[in-house]
Amino acid sequence: METVTTHRASGPPAAPSDEPILEVQFDDLEQQHEASSVGMWVFLATEVMFFGGLIAAYAVYRAISPSEVALASQHLNVGLGCLNTVILLGSSLSMALAVRAAQLQSRRNLLWFLAITAALGACFLGVKAVEYYQEYREHLIPGWNFQIPAQVAAKSSSLPLDPRRFEMFFVLYFFMTGLHAFHLIVGIALVSVMALLTWRRWFSGSGETQIEVTGLYWHFVDVVWVFLYPLLYLIDVQS
């Protein structure tokens, strides 16, 4: 940043301007930006561990009961899962363009891309709701209306299948996708707040740091789904 910036603590309060405010504890804007970015990455590292617990549970159950997991996975809708992946990747592209718009101080583009990002996130949740409803109709929600499907029950008499392991796949499925959906709801709320603050011209500067940090969170949620999709949906689609 070449332009001269003032510390908030010194001098008269800055009139609403397009210049970012440098807080007193930082040497320069570069360092201030870096601190926020690294801070968000540290938070995302803890989020990896948050999802890591579920992924470890999944790995154990898949390792000790591969046939039940493969059979249960066939009851998920591969097409809707794929559609949701496309939607989420699209939202990440939009978020990346929103960060670019913030860097270039293009307020109008920033608002548009934030709106598109939030809308695509909502689309993802809509498709997810359709999937959950299908699973409800098929009696596949553990603890609510779970029933072993008839064709699986027929197979389990000839094959050594453990119905409880079959049900456990759906426990893991709902916890993993549910936790992911919760993160997406938080992401949509964050993006909406950022859009509102941009609309109200609340940020000093164009909110570049804030938008970028929000973007990091959004992309992280996308990365989680990139792993969940093959792990849950694409285990045994051939038979």
């Binding site: 690294v38 990455w41 540290v42 995302l44 590292a45 803890t46 990896v48 561990m49 890591g52 617990g53 992924i55 470890a56 790995a59």
Partner: peptide, 13 residues
Amino acid sequence: VSVASLLWLGILL
């Protein structure tokens, strides 16, 4: 920081 998160996940798994 980003690679450290993968390291911890690797230890867990």
